[in-house]
Write a protein that binds this DNA or RNA. Structure first.
Length: 516
RNA sequence: GCCCCCAUCGUCUAGCGGCCUAGGACAUCACCCUUUCAAGGUGGAGAUCACGGGUUCGAAUCCCGUUGGGGGUACCA
């Protein structure tokens, strides 16, 4: 009975470069210990794209074996994130599938059985060491300047010792009997072979004393049983990849193709984007008025590229073009400016109906939540709001910009400094005169229509010997209360004759009493 | 400490030995358009391709080293 199975021959996965054309089964396997951010979803997006590109399947598997850290609601949030992004899950919680269950806590018997098989084959062993001893050993190693690693105390226990401890009812973990000499080669579709000296490997715990597997065991078994062909995961997994390669071989299984995707870095500081460092939960972007199309397009270009010019790529184009070969290896930094640009771009692409549909909720929420002033009655008139939104469409960077940008279209009373009514190179008297003459011009209009307004008002400008900006600035402030607004005439048309004329009258009164 | 990964404009990137006096996008600046702000158009500035050695007729591209950054080092994933 061998107490160790040294696997000295280099392991090799199948050629990473010939397989992208086969239908790929990929997976995203988060642990429900918190929210997922852009970094996690970016990896998931690549997996999804690879599956769609090759006509394969994309699955969601929940790695909830660390029951103490499991956060309620985390699974639902992940799924909601995928729904929002429009990335359909082919198999997983909720949708089910032929390879379930998709929660690792529901697959315990499987892991137990394979751990047993590993022990029988001499590829793993029971470890009775207490956490205290483990910690002591590590501290001693550190003190001696050695890398902290399990000293393999239990690996060479005599069979009768083991039997005795078992009979005594001692708890144990199961550890991988990793080879102590030779090299293990990990293939990665994104980079050249990664070679590890087996002597530097640890005997990682595969099964915890509470009977739950660790990632190292569960991930190998599930990926194999679920027939995953490509494992896309964060590059933080590279160091433990040799352990997984060894486990595949010990089980006699062909490993999937690995692609360790580079990190997404926080904007500041060069550290990995993380919950505690610069990252927002994905769904927070939805609440902040981002469009899923923009997020998807942005994420796809974080670490992947199509060619030397393509920037805007719709989902279908992404699916058609995605390839592992064009995924880079250098970490990419998260850049809010770029995301915002994509978001503005996709907002501009929205049809009037879509824009109204999507922006309305942002406007109707409470003032405290960023919506229109509470004094504005809800629900909003859809047709009117649609016209208003259309006027501001090309100015919006997020849907959440809508309320602040459009509030003057809904408010009863405008508050502004009368001083701002006076344009550059103008004075109060001439402004007053311009406003009064505008009233006459506007009153004479048969139809309250922008083009007509502009024609007549431009005639007035000429008659008064002013520049357009001198009169129009005053009218703009009178009618909107601000110096920045959508084009004046369309704005007045949308506001309607009554509101516009009343506001001009109020402006005249305000300026007159201010100046006088 | 030890193991591993990475390195082109501020940022995302193209480049896989000659097409590069390094291309695109975001951001930035100027101008045009213009009733403001945007959007759009044009143009500019911005990268001694981290550094040092090789290999080669020829290197951003291949090799080695250095430096720098990042990750891992748990009965977490």
């Amino acid at each position: 009975m061998p107490h160790s199975a040294d696997i000295d021959a280099p392991l090799s996965a199948s050629d990473p470069h010939t397989t992208t054309r086969r239908a790929a089964r990929t997976r995203f396997a988060p642990s429900p210990t918190g929210f997922q951010h852009i970094g996690g979803y970016r990896t998931a997006l690549f997996s999804w794209l690879l599956a769609r590109h090759t006509g394969g399947q994309f699955l969601l598997r929940i790695e909830d074996t660390d029951t103490a850290r499991t956060v309620p609601g985390a699974v639902e949030a992940v799924i909601e994130g995928f729904k929002w992004l429009g990335l359909e899950i082919d198999e997983g919680p909720e949708v089910g599938g032929p390879y379930g269950p998709y929660f690792q806590t529901q697959r315990r018997d499987l892991y137990l059985a394979y751990a047993e098989r590993l022990i029988e084959g001499g590829h793993a062993y029971r470890c009775f060491c207490s956490p205290e001893r483990l910690q002591r050993v590590r501290e001693e190693q550190r003190a001696r300047g050695e890398p902290p690693r399990y000293d393999r105390h239990c690996r060479y226990l005599a069979p009768k010792d083991i039997a005795a401890r078992l009979a005594e009812g001692q708890g144990y973990t199961v550890r991988l009997a990793s080879p102590t000499a030779g090299k293990t080669v990990v293939n990665d579709a994104l980079r050249t072979q990664i070679v590890f000296e087996n002597a530097s490997l640890d005997d990682a715990v595969l099964l915890k004393s509470n009977g739950f597997p660790t990632y190292h065991l569960a991930n190998v078994i599930d990926d194999h049983l679920m027939e995953i062909t490509h494992v896309l995961r964060a590059e933080e997994w590279i160091p433990s990849a040799p352990l997984h390669a060894i486990t595949y071989q010990a089980l006699g299984w062909e490993p999937p193709i690995f692609a360790h995707v580079p990190d997404v870095l926080a904007t500041q500081g060069g550290k990995k984007l993380s919950k505690r460092f610069g990252a927002l939960p994905l769904l927070e972007y939805r609440d902040r008025g981002y469009l899923p199309q923009a997020i998807v397009n942005y994420m796809a270009l974080l670490g992947w590229s199509y060619d030397d010019k393509s920037n805007v790529l719709a989902r279908a184009q992404l699916v058609a073009a995605f390839d592992l070969d064009r995924v880079g290896v250098a970490p990419a930094r998260y850049d809010d400016d770029r995301l915002l640009w994509f978001n503005g771009y996709y907002i501009r692409q929205l049809s009037p109906e879509e824009l109204t549909e999507q922006a309305l909720p942002f406007m109707e929420r409470s003032e405290a939540a960023g919506g229109l002033p509470d004094s504005v009655a809800r629900p909003l008139d859809k047709a009117y709001t649609g016209r208003v939104l259309h006027l501001e469409q090309e100015r919006m960077k997020t849907l959440a910009d809508a309320p602040a940008m459009t509030s003057f279209f809904f408010e009863q009373v405008l508050r502004y400094e009368p001083q701002t009514l006076i344009a550059k190179n103008m004075d109060a008297a001439r402004t007053l005169d311009g406003l009064r003459r505008s009233q006459d011009t506007l009153n004479a209009l048969a139809d309250w229509q922008a083009e007509e307004m502009e024609a007549r008002l431009r005639e007035l400008v000429a008659e008064l010997g002013l520049k357009p900006v001198q009169l129009f600035t005053s009218l703009r402030v009178a009618v909107t209360g601000r110096t920045v607004s959508p084009p004046l005439f369309e704005t007045m048309e949308t506001l309607g004759r009554d509101v516009s004329m009343r506001r001009i009258e109020q402006a005249i009164e305000a300026l007159a009493s201010h100046a006088g």
